[in-house]
């Protein structure tokens, strides 16, 4: 390692993209036809990553850093948040972007380390199944959630957020 960045002295133009044309095609696992998907995935990782910084930092701040922080988190707290469509939309966007970003990252890692075709196929099948299950489950939970539950006698349950009193009675 030298004191200055070796990259700094290279001209900005005239450098080929990493590995372009330097690897004999017979050593490449994927055919050229998957190129456009990989390009979209590469851009998606960066766009979703930038959005996730905002989504996740606000999520952590509003749940853990304000109010009573970790102690405030219970059923009524979640119900109170999802009574607001902004938080529903916030959590939904975060769920989809984080799962797709994470799944695509895991796909890259599987491609890097699993050398046998059959191993890669297995691991990726499990990965995509898990991704689909979590996205569908999470989406259903956000939209079918019922905050004001009643007990058998028709009274509001203790766990209900305070706004339920004006809704039910």
């Amino acid at each position: 390692m030298t004191a200055t960045n070796s990259e700094a002295v290279l001209p900005a133009q005239g450098i080929e993209a990493p590995r372009s044309g330097r690897i004999d095609p017979k050593y490449l696992r994927s055919s050229a036809s998957s190129g456009s998907f990989e390009m979209v995935a590469w851009v998606f990782m960066r766009v979703s990553g930038a959005a996730l910084v905002v989504l996740i930092f606000v999520h952590l701040f509003s749940n853990l850093m304000v109010g009573e922080g970790i102690h405030q988190i219970d059923f009524a707290f979640v119900a109170g948040k999802w009574a607001n469509p902004v938080w529903q939309f916030w959590d939904l966007t975060m769920l989809w972007l984080a799962m797709l970003h994470g799944t695509n990252g895991m796909r890259t890692i599987i491609n890097d380390y699993a050398e046998k075709d059959s191993t890669r196929l297995w691991l990726k099948s499990i990965l995509y199944l898990a991704c689909a299950v979590i996205i569908i489950l999470g989406t259903l939970v956000i939209f079918t959630f019922e905050p004001c539950l009643l007990d058998d006698a028709g009274n509001l349950m203790d766990y209900s957020p305070s706004f339920c009193e004006s809704v039910v009675n």
């Binding site: 059923f75 979640v78 119900a79 979590i134 999470g138 939970v141 079918t144 959630f145």
Partner: peptide, 8 residues
């Protein structure tokens, strides 16, 4: 996501 699903 699984633990949050318990609200349902």
């Amino acid at each position: 996501v699984l633990d949050t699903s318990l609200v349902r």
